[in-house]
Amino acid sequence: MSVRINVLDHVMVPNHQVMSEEEVQNLLRRYDITFDQLPRIYHDDPGVRQVNGKVGDVIRIVRKSQTAGIAEAYRLVVRRPKK
């Protein structure tokens, strides 16, 4: 792509943030889950690339929700499997 647009500006894309080590530990403790129980996102996803997420990072996604107003979701960055 010649002109890189910031996908986070699009109305359909919620805010993505890379979480710190400590936040991730708190998250896993709060829900009593392991890393691989988190939903995934691929490393080359436009949203992840915009915030420079690396494989193994956890991305916090702040969604606008019709029911709750604001809802947070979390995704683990994984490598896109080769077809």
Binding site: V7, H10, M12, V13, H16, I41, D45, P46, G47
Partner: peptide, 25 residues
């Protein structure tokens, strides 16, 4: 306007805007 333009092709949205946008779509 690259902040509001949309399509009804969901796989295209997943490719260009990412999985979270696809979920919204």
């Amino acid at each position: 306007d690259t902040t509001r333009t949309r399509t009804n092709n969901i796989s295209e949205i997943a490719q260009v805007l990412g999985i979270e946008a696809a979920r919204n779509a």
